[in-house]
């Protein structure tokens, strides 16, 4: 009945071109048009290069024929590349864990400093993150330098023998991690400090009354309340650290004996310096599927917790 009633209403016929106008006035159309510049930028700077890299990785050295996954097969057979995988994973995971732990510790310390003193400490602790990493790494390079190393000089004062920071593979790996942690920990600190400030004070009071010690308050209140921010910062830092180039390039340039290369520096060496661009592309794409899967699960967890708790 209702349909019949509606059908009898006089229908105003749209004059020619009106439907196009109506389409242009729809909110979704306007929204699309307004975001178009951004979509173009992302398309041009992210999607196209990524697609092109995938395309390159499937070509032969002279980029004349399609060889499918051939580049990846050759890489996996190469002992040097297997070492690069180990070194990259070791570097990224160790550095991210240390950055997160030190960042959390610093944030916790800062959080308990009264507000007026907190600002200057926060400012000072952020300095490593603000200096361009290529420059600060150069400073570290000087400190690690075998002849004039200031770090060794200090060690010698305490009767500890000099350390071959960049000359011996394991020490070189540790040096790279130290610089990366020094550079990246302030980012974690500032994110965790913001997260700590957002935990309601009454939850700690309720936990204190419930019988929690300060360690248990950290374990059962602080950490669960910060789980989302910890997941996101760790994921973000993992991606950035896997892609790290400048610190390795400046500090060790992959040496000694190619033992400190990470994906980015090795991709540069293979693709640009050795002129095998398709294989370089294959190196740089190697972690992409693994990181994409990790990102998917982490973000899904964050989303679920947001829905349930926030």
């Amino acid at each position: 009945m209702a349909d019949g009633g509606a059908a009898t209403l006089p229908r105003i016929e749209a004059p020619g071109g009106a439907s196009l106008k109506r389409f242009a006035r729809r909110r979704s159309t306007i929204a699309f048009l307004m975001t178009l510049p951004l979509i173009a930028v992302i398309g041009g700077l992210v999607v196209w290069p990524a697609g092109y890299a995938i395309h390159l990785a499937t070509l032969n050295r002279r980029m004349t024929s399609f060889i499918g996954l051939g580049n990846f097969e050759i890489l996996l057979e190469s002992e040097t590349f297997r070492m690069v995988i180990f070194q990259s994973v070791f570097f990224a995971i160790t550095a991210v864990i240390l950055k997160a732990a030190i960042g959390f510790w610093l944030a916790h310390m800062l959080h308990h400093i009264p507000a007026n003193g907190q600002r200057k400490w926060r400012g000072m602790l952020l300095v490593p993150w603000v200096i361009p990493p290529a420059l600060s790494t150069l400073g570290w390079w000087w400190m690690f330098e075998p002849t004039y190393s200031s770090i060794n000089w200090i060690l010698n004062i305490f009767a500890i023998p000099s350390v071959p920071w960049l000359g011996e593979p394991w020490w070189a790996r540790i040096s790279v991690i130290i610089v990366n942690v020094w550079y990246g920990a302030p980012f974690f600190m500032i994110m965790y400090l913001a997260a700590l400030k957002s935990v309601p004070e009454q939850l700690y009071e309720a936990a204190a009354i419930d019988g929690a010690t300060s360690w248990q308050r950290l374990r059962y209140v602080t950490l669960p309340m910060m789980r989302n921010i910890i997941s996101i910062t760790v994921l973000f830092s993992l991606i950035v650290t896997f892609a790290n180039y400048d610190i390795v390039r400046v500090l060790t340039n992959g040496g000694p004996r190619d033992l400190t290369h990470v994906f980015a520096s090795y991709a540069f060496q293979v693709g640009i310096l050795a002129g095998n661009i398709p294989r370089g592309a294959a190196v740089s794409l190697f972690m992409f599927p693994i990181l994409a899967i990790i990102a998917f699960f982490v973000l899904r967890g964050v989303n679920r917790r947001n829905k349930e708790e926030a």
Partner: peptide
């Protein structure tokens, strides 16, 4: 507490 202070997680 006034605002309950339940642990959201």
């Amino acid at each position: 507490f006034q605002n309950y202070a339940l642990y959201p997680h």
